[in-house]
Simulated assay, not measured.
Amino acid sequence: MIAKINGDRALALARDVLDIEADAVRGLRDQIDGSFVSAVDFLLSCRGRVVVSGIGKSGHVARKLAATLASTGTPAFFVHPAEASHGDLGMVTADDVFVALSNSGESEELVAILPIVKRLGTKLIAMTGRPESTLAKLADVHLNSSVAKEACPLNLAPTASTTAALALGDALAVAVLDARGFGADDFARSHPGGALGRRLLTYVRDVMRTGEQLPKVPSSATVRDALFQLTAKRMGMTAIVGFDDRVEGIFTDGDLRRVLERTGDFRDLPIADVMTRAPRTIAPDHLAVEAVELMERYRINQMLVIDEAGKLIGALNMHDLFSKKVI
C-alpha cells in the first residue's frame, strides 16, 4: 500500500517540530548554572584528552561534540561505550576528562564502564535529561539537558532531546574556545584542507604576480608603453614606478577609457599626465582576505604590492584571488 501525503498535515507537523525543538533549546538557558562553569574549568585544565562517549542517538551527538572540541583547540576523541568494555578503555587515563552523554542517564553500556573511569581518577562530566539518574549521580559535574517533550508525535523518538544535547555541547565547546583564547588563525590551522583554511592561511605573497608577470613602466613612459603592458600582462593595469621601483601611480583600464575620450593622438602622452596617483597598495605579509576586503570597499579590481620602502614587489587582481579560491 502506498501512503498518500497530506500536504497540510505535513507542513503543520514540520512547524510543530521546529517550535518544540526551538523551545527545548531556549529552555536550556534557565537550566545552565554553576555546573556549566565547572565543566568548562575541567576541560580547560585537562592535561590529557577529552574522551566523549554515548550510545544510540546520544552517541551521534557525542561524536559531533568530540569533533567540535578537537577543531576548536581542545584535543578530544569519541569512544563507543560498548567497545570501551572490550578494550578501548585502555585509551582513557587519569589525566583525561570523560564526557558521557545519555538522555536517560541509564544507558547500560555507558553505566557499566563508569566504575573503571572513576577508579582511574578521571574527571567525569555527564550530560543527561534526568538529574536523578545513575549517570548524573556518579558524575563530578552534571549538565542538565532535559526537555519538556520530544518533537515526535508519539513522544518517543529522540528528537528535541538530541537537539538540546547538541546545542548544550556547542555551548560548552564555545565557552572553552573563548576561555582558551582560540582565534581565527588557530581555527585555520586545524582546517587547512577546507575553504576556510585557504581563506585564513593564504597571504598576499602567495597569490601576487611577480617578475616577468608584473606589469610596470617608468614614470617617463608614454601611454603607448603602458598600453603594451596592459595587453602583454593581461592584468587590466600597469604600475608606474620611479627611482628604485618606488610606486608613483597606476594606469588601469578605467584610466584608458578616460584617455580615449580625448581628441587627437593620445599614444605619445606622458603616462605621468594620465595615471592615477597614490594608488591603493598592500604589503605582502597581509592576508589575502584583507586584500579582498580593500578591493571590495574601494571598488577596484587590482592592487599593487609594495615593501616597507614603497618599492613595487608584486601585484594582484580579483582573478588571482578567484583562482586561489580565496573568494
Rank of each mutant, 00 (worst) to 15 (best):
residue 7 G to V: 14
residue 8 D to Y: 02
residue 9 R to I: 03
residue 10 A to Y: 05
residue 13 L to W: 05
residue 18 L to D: 10
residue 19 D to N: 08
residue 29 R to V: 05
residue 38 S to V: 10
residue 45 S to M: 11
residue 47 R to M: 13
residue 48 G to C: 06
residue 60 H to G: 12
residue 70 A to P: 00
residue 84 A to E: 02
residue 90 G to H: 15
residue 93 T to H: 12
residue 106 E to F: 13
residue 109 E to F: 11
residue 111 V to T: 14
residue 118 K to W: 03
residue 118 K to M: 05
residue 121 G to H: 07
residue 136 A to Y: 07
residue 137 K to W: 10
residue 138 L to G: 15
residue 139 A to L: 14
residue 146 S to G: 09
residue 148 A to G: 09
residue 153 P to F: 12
residue 154 L to I: 06
residue 163 T to W: 10
residue 169 G to S: 15
residue 173 A to E: 03
residue 179 A to D: 13
residue 197 G to Y: 15
residue 202 T to V: 05
residue 209 R to A: 11
residue 211 G to I: 09
residue 212 E to C: 05
residue 212 E to K: 09
residue 217 V to S: 02
residue 220 S to Y: 03
residue 225 D to Y: 06
residue 227 L to C: 09
residue 231 T to D: 10
residue 232 A to K: 14
residue 234 R to E: 02
residue 234 R to H: 11
residue 239 A to S: 04
residue 241 V to T: 02
residue 251 F to V: 07
residue 268 D to Q: 08
residue 271 I to W: 05
residue 273 D to P: 06
residue 277 R to H: 08
residue 280 R to I: 12
residue 281 T to Y: 06
residue 298 Y to T: 02
residue 302 Q to V: 12
residue 307 D to Q: 00
residue 312 L to W: 01
residue 323 S to G: 03
residue 323 S to V: 07
residue 323 S to M: 06
